[in-house]
Design a protein around this nucleic acid. Structure first.
Lengths: 350, 350
DNA sequence: TCGTTCTAGTCGAACGATTTAGTAAATCGA
DNA sequence: TCGATTTACTAAATCGTTCGACTAGAACGA
């Protein structure tokens, strides 16, 4: 292909100044329709595709896109209905404002995260041509946050305790309701299955809560509050937020001598893993052991899963508006949640 | 915030030339570790976030991201398991090469697509800061394709008949197998539910196949071939590729006097709509009417849906490699498909 | 008729980096 | 010890736009 034509070439060929060509594309009202048509015709002749995206971004200081930070693997994120819901909400706003959506994969920030991996991933954040960044499930203190801050990029996320504009739910209150519900049903020995990310190689009990995302930690706290001081709550994890790890964690729990009468999952996806583990042992949710989820993803209803409904898509939409709608100035939005009681929870059997 | 520091500022403060600062970030081996450290220290002091993304893209002619063209609404794409699978595969490759993934929404290109909408969306494609573009379900002749071509961007897609590098499946062969399977079961009156996009406001028969995506058209042809010339095949649509439109289309079909004994859907999602329509009438897939899908999305197995398995994620991966892996030079890849027979198809009842 | 406001453009300087070519000093082989 | 190579860094030229300031001429009101 021939070194492609630039605006200058088009200007020369059309007998106008480069600024006028620029205006033809960006400010139609600044020039006569006649000249504008001539410029477009010339552009077509020369095979000029229109203003170069990078140059335009540089000069105008606008990228026409916002970034979404995805912890966990990108390829995995799309199998997580929560992520998909958030993304859909964000995409809705982006689409309306004709803004692109750049997905940025980011490793979790654990104490043992490989420094090189971390550095490289931070490069990705640095190199992203975006006007703002949205995130969820970010680890407090992640180096990428510094990059965002020093780039001066607008930032919106949905985690407690992370600085910046945010849209959250009352995590503690939501799981407190779960705890109270279970307490009313007579449960006093409850296991909570959480997402501990890469921190857990082997399914097992989590004694160090600091490995959890802030939100997961808050959910654990709320559950404890709801159940009351007398109840026993064991935190377990099988790894990430996936059916597999929910399954693994539940297997661990179900094998213990002192089996809980209820298992609360930190997310619906995990809860499905729990249910699968029970199914394999011939146990039925509700009848034998009560199970709760969190999020109320679409599949939860069909499965009869008692869970906390949170407006996932609204969360995404709000993140989008925080970044793209200048009239939207709230620094902190709290969205409502609702305990949805279905058939997976029942009174404890004696 | 203070007008943020540039590379020049850092260079001045550190007592080196801007080129050296650039090298500190991009070519560590080009300078002494000592100077590099000093530069980073200075940068930190000045609150310099590292090379500006847009400027870097402009000068180096690299964007560090690839685009994915999404027909249909972005917000809708994520509810389509096929799209999600493709995206996951693409994301896998992108992630591995530390490349971002920019989602670009694009309206379908029908004869009646609003010209303004089209023009604006083409702007999005023009303005995307990317090194290449992947697409699926693109309409032949879509103006966005011209923009991609004239920008000289590498392009890879998964549609037949659209120019450019591509990864496809043997659409005709795959549905021919479906047709043959149905023929063997004795079906001679078959309806095919297809995605006709916005072309269909009201569910009904499709007589003008040109409104279909190329791939959908090929699927119809294959089905006809497999069923043989004696069979009757009716094309119907309820709109997009969604459960709702599958439902609508099936309702239309089921209401007709000469009801088909089998319904072949152009996608699993549509098939689920068909099954739902049947359920509402007390009809059971396989027992009363045979139903087939296409894609073999995860939910298909649980539903016992006879369908064509195509390696969706592989498709995405291959698209990614075409754009990002220089050693990958094939212009056209055909991936294998497999007819998966489950319980939703059965011999026709007399 | 004169000053003012529009209209339709022009001009030149950024925007913030990377790249190519080049240089002075240090190191090397024989 | 001498020319050749390597090392560590610099200078200047872009990359392709958009932006702010400016202007020649037309149109306008009084």
């Amino acid at each position: 292909m021939p070194a492609s034509a630039t605006m200058k070439d088009v200007a020369a060929a059309a007998g106008v100044s480069p600024s006028t060509v620029s205006n033809a594309y960006n400010k139609p009202e600044q020039l006569s329709a006649e000249v504008r048509q001539r410029i477009f015709a010339t552009a077509r002749e020369l095979g000029y595709a229109g203003p170069d995206a990078a140059a335009r971004s540089l000069r105008s200081r606008r990228a026409g896109a916002i970034g979404l930070l995805l912890t966990e693997q990108l390829s995995y994120a799309f199998s997580d209905p929560f992520a998909v819901g958030l993304l859909a909400g964000l995409a809705e706003v982006a689409e309306r404002t004709r803004t692109g959506l750049l997905l940025i994969p980011l490793p979790r920030y654990d104490t043992d995260t490989d420094a090189d991996v971390l550095r490289e991933s931070v490069e990705t954040v640095r190199g992203a041509v975006v006007d703002g960044i949205a995130a969820y499930c970010v680890d407090v203190g992640h180096p990428a946050l510094d990059v965002i801050a020093s780039r001066g990029l607008p930032f919106a996320h949905s985690d407690h305790d992370v600085p910046g504009r945010r849209v959250v739910i009352d995590e503690v209150g939501a799981t407190r309701a779960v705890g109270e519900h279970l307490a009313r049903l007579g449960h006093t020995n409850v296991a909570m299955v959480v997402d501990a990310g890469r921190a857990t190689d082997v399914p097992g009990e989590i004694t160090d809560e600091t490995v959890l995302y802030t939100n997961a930690r808050l959910r654990a706290r709320g559950l404890r509050e709801g159940l009351g001081a007398d109840a026993r709550v064991t935190l377990v994890s099988g790894g990430h937020n996936s059916v597999e790890s929910g399954l693994a964690a539940a297997q661990f729990v179900l094998d213990r001598r002192d089996r809980p009468t209820a298992i609360a999952a930190g997310g619906d996806v995990l809860a499905f893993g729990v249910i699968e583990a029970m199914r394999r042992r011939g146990l039925s949710p509700g009848r034998d052991i009560s199970v709760t989820g969190f999020d109320d993803i679409p599949a939860a209803e069909a499965a009869g899963l008692t869970t906390v409904r949170q407006p996932i898509r609204d969360k995404g939409r709000t993140l989008g508006r925080m970044l793209l709608d200048p009239t939207f100035t709230d620094e902190r939005i709290v969205l409502p949640t609702e305990l949805v009681i279905r058939s997976s929870t029942a009174p404890v059997r004696n």
